[in-house]
């Protein structure tokens, strides 16, 4: 809770119950007490696939279907060496023409290193 701060032990139990009932599951996140907003789980390898349920904007348009979305996540938010163009160093512009993966996926082209 952010507006009420638990002081005694009973209040902490009420707070925990509230979090367990309504809060997001934030297991293994670095900052579990951060304000809970729609978010990426940190690290795709810990997530049960398919589907991350919501994308970074809180909607469903960017979920793992269509298939390009999978590539996109490995490209934009994951440090893990994946079989996709490397966003940080060599191909920062790879998805610049793809505003919404559901519509613009054809604009994500092949790269030739």
């Amino acid at each position: 809770m952010r507006h009420l701060r638990a002081i005694n032990k009973k209040a902490r139990r009420i707070d925990d119950l509230q979090t367990a009932t309504d809060g997001d599951v934030v297991a293994m996140q670095q900052n579990a007490n951060a304000a809970q907003r729609p978010h990426y789980p940190m690290g795709c390898s810990i997530v049960f696939s398919p589907g991350w349920e919501v994308d970074s904007s809180g909607g469903t348009a960017g979920l793992c279907q269509p298939v390009e979305r999978d590539l996109y996540d490995c490209y934009i938010s994951c440090y893990w060496p994946a079989q996709v163009p490397d966003h940080l160093n060599n191909y920062p512009e790879w998805t610049s023409k793809c505003a919404a993966a559901t519509k613009d996926w054809r604009n994500i082209d092949l790269v030739f290193p």
Partner: peptide, 18 residues
């Protein structure tokens, strides 16, 4: 400001908005 909740016995500090 604080609240002592009844009957749970929980004690919370409340912010200005609350």
């Amino acid at each position: 400001p604080f609240l002592y909740l009844v009957p749970s016995g929980g004690i919370f500090a409340v912010d200005d908005l609350s």
